[in-house]
Design a protein around this nucleic acid. Structure first.
Length: 609
RNA sequence: GGGCCCGUAGCUUAGCCUGGAUAGAGCGCCAGCCUCCGGAGCUGGAGGUCCCGGGUUCAAAUCCCGGCGGGCCCGCCA
């Protein structure tokens, strides 16, 4: 493909048309029908650019091409404004085999010209309850991106941000401290998840009861109705939690009675941030560490690992957040907003270059960002500014895999970095935004403890896979069935979570996810197994001797199709890596599997040698 | 009130950034294929107002404007 773009570029530049070789290269596309050609070059764009008629441009190009007699092109086919190239099979095969015999499994994994240091921060769930399917999508996207970028030659660092200074952790800690010394039973994230949700529920119930009373006094019966139904919902939540661990929840309800929850929570937050009481600090840390251990187990099952687990609290205690605040005070954008330290973006965001480079919404007034509460404690975004700076210390680019809900917050973060003079950071911070995962028939709420957690999701995937495997292989040894079910089940989930473009909501339907036919993880794995078995049955090392190859077989349509598809892999990979589109690879894998299976049926490889 | 994302076959979706050739797949449906390396397969068929209405253009699923439907965001929450 490079050669096609290159020679076209040669011809055009010689003719005096100003164009870059990359421009041509990137215009190359897939013809809609196989019979049109292998690679198409649309000429409309260029004819417009060069101000010549496209027919003229084409005939001129063809004449020159003819003179050069490129060996990579066997035939050229013009339809409309398209120049369709047929690739010379022999030439393609030679190159393919040569590359594969040289670099083997790294075929197509083209290394970037300028390797970068890239941080991928992903998952980063609050350590207050088990991971759910949404975190699953986050984790798989982050993990797959990291793997692709690593193969592209970048130095990737995978980081998990432990958000231990937020209100949610304080609520969990409040519950735990109220219970006194608790020893977690079972998986820690599940155990603490119950305490968190129950504490939350009790607080909500108490708050709603007060609201209800006030509404009654006022005689606002619409409000009474509204609050009442909300109250009922939370009472149900509590009942659901009791069914999970009755003793624990009942004890918690008893001990929380009559307390001023808000005051306690605020006290915990302040104590923790300012390190006023080492006991509380230790307790909060231990709880979070326990929950994180649960996360690590779940993620490990999914094949997801991290290089660093960064504690939000460390940023504060090590004084990095203070440095940010000091810097902010000196910033020309510093202001006092509603009596608190803040950054005022009104001037900065008007600059159109800034809006464009930071990818801010077209016309949205981003309000001032408050950096510090009146009680002196910091806010999430302030700490996130500090974290971003830390991440950039050893990185050229930072990719945050964060759900789309946080788009505005992420835009605000970039703006804040710029306001503080962190220009490089602001411009190289990428919010890799993704949409929610829908499970038909399930309404999820993290706070209410209503979600399908990843552990049970994985279990279900494996047991569904087991069912399918034993149905198809009734005589297989039990141990093998289980091993295969694990691999297939997990592969199916990973595949499902990465196969839909991140910007679209993903609908998770078991029948599709664990469909063993086409367009699924299991199908790709099955095809791979068949391919590997050919090699196994062949039993010898594959001979890549280019001299003894019979190039006539390449004219067979199915073999030719497979060959052409294979030589396009490097481009697909490069696109997936550079445009951060892992789903491109999924699509390619599916197409390759389809083509391979057709080939497999049509051509008995081992027999033919 | 303002902003962002999504809307493509009954279902799940690719293509949209960078306009161009008969809108690609898979499931499901219909009709075929087991002397053969793993049938979790293969071959073929039916199935589309690309949410609607304008505009730009020689050309719009794609770009612009206005609607509709679904989701989300605008805190001294995270």
């Amino acid at each position: 493909m490079r050669e096609i773009a290159n020679s076209t570029w040669n011809i055009w530049s010689k003719a005096g048309f100003e164009v870059s070789m990359n421009d041509i290269y990137e215009s190359l596309e897939e013809p809609p029908l196989e019979k049109f050609g292998d690679i198409a070059l649309p000429t409309f764009r260029f004819s417009k650019k060069f101000k010549v008629n496209y027919k003229e441009l084409i005939s001129k190009t063809l004449r020159e091409l003819d003179l050069r007699r490129l060996r990579v092109i066997s035939r050229v086919n013009v339809i409309g404004g398209y120049i369709n190239f047929f690739i010379n099979e022999e030439c393609a095969a030679k190159e393919l085999f040569q590359t594969i015999s040289n670099i083997g499994y790294d075929y197509g994994l083209k290394t970037a010209e300028k390797p970068l240091r890239i941080v991928v921060e992903h998952t980063s769930a609050n350590p207050v309850h088990p991971l759910h399917i949404g975190h699953g999508r986050n984790a798989i996207l982050g993990d797959v991106l990291s793997r692709i970028l690593t193969k592209r030659g970048h130095r990737v660092i995978r980081r998990f941000y432990i958000n231990d200074m937020g209100r949610q952790v304080a609520i969990l800690a409040y519950g735990c401290l109220t219970l006194g010394s608790v020893q977690p039973t079972g998986k820690p994230d599940h155990f603490y998840g119950i305490i968190y949700s129950a504490t939350n529920a009790v607080m909500e119930i108490d708050r709603l009861k007060k609201e209800l009373e006030e509404a009654r006094k006022k005689g606002d019966y619409i409000e009474v109705e509204k609050v009442n139904s909300e109250l009922l919902d939370w009472l149900n939540v509590l009942a659901e939690l009791k069914s999970k661990n009755n003793k624990l929840v009942m004890t918690l309800i008893g001990r929380l009675k009559g307390k001023d929850h808000e005051k306690e929570i605020q006290n915990i937050m302040r104590t923790y941030e300012k390190r006023l009481d080492e006991n509380i600090v230790k307790t909060v840390r231990r709880i979070c560490a326990d929950v994180i251990e649960g996360f690590r187990e779940t993620l490990g099952k999914m094949g997801v690992e991290f290089d660093f687990w960064d504690w939000e609290s460390d940023l504060v205690w090590e004084g990095i957040v203070d440095e940010v605040l000091a810097k902010a005070k000196k910033s020309p954008y510093f202001t006092i907003y509603k009596g608190a330290s803040a950054l005022d973006f009104s001037a900065l965001q008007k600059i159109s270059e800034v809006r464009e480079k930071l990818k801010l919404p077209k016309s949205f007034e981003i309000p001032p960002l408050i950096l510090r509460r009146s009680d002196g404690t910091t806010l999430y975004t302030t700490r996130d500014i500090a974290y971003s700076i830390v991440k950039f210390k050893k990185a050229d680019k930072v990719i945050n895999v964060i759900m789309s809900e946080q788009k505005l917050a992420q835009a605000q973060l970039r703006l804040a970095l710029l306001a503080l003079g962190y220009r490089r950071e602001a411009y190289n911070l990428i919010h890799y935004s993704y949409e929610i995962v829908n499970l038909p028939g399930v309404k999820m709420s993290g706070r209410k403890g209503r979600f399908v957690d990843l552990d049970s999701l994985i279990e279900e995937a494996i047991s569904r896979a087991y069912f399918e495997v034993s149905k198809r292989n009734p005589n297989m040894a039990e141990e093998w069935k289980e091993r295969i079910a694990r691999i297939v089940g997990l592969g199916a989930v990973r595949y499902a979570l990465v196969s839909v473009s991140a910007s679209k909501p993903l609908t998770f339907i078991w029948d599709n996810v664990l469909n063993f036919e086409k367009n699924s993880g299991p199908y790709i794995q099955y095809t791979y197994a068949r391919a590997i078995n050919i090699l196994k049955n062949y039993g010898k090392k594959v001979n890549f001797d280019l001299e003894t190859l019979d190039y006539n077989v390449l004219r067979k349509p199915i073999i030719r199709r497979l060959l052409i598809l294979l030589i396009k892999f490097p481009n697909t990979f490069t696109k997936a890596a550079d445009e951060l589109k892992p789903e491109c690879l999924v699509e390619y894998a599916g197409k390759l599997a389809d083509t391979f299976n057709s080939f497999y049926t049509a051509e008995p490889v081992v027999k033919e040698e």
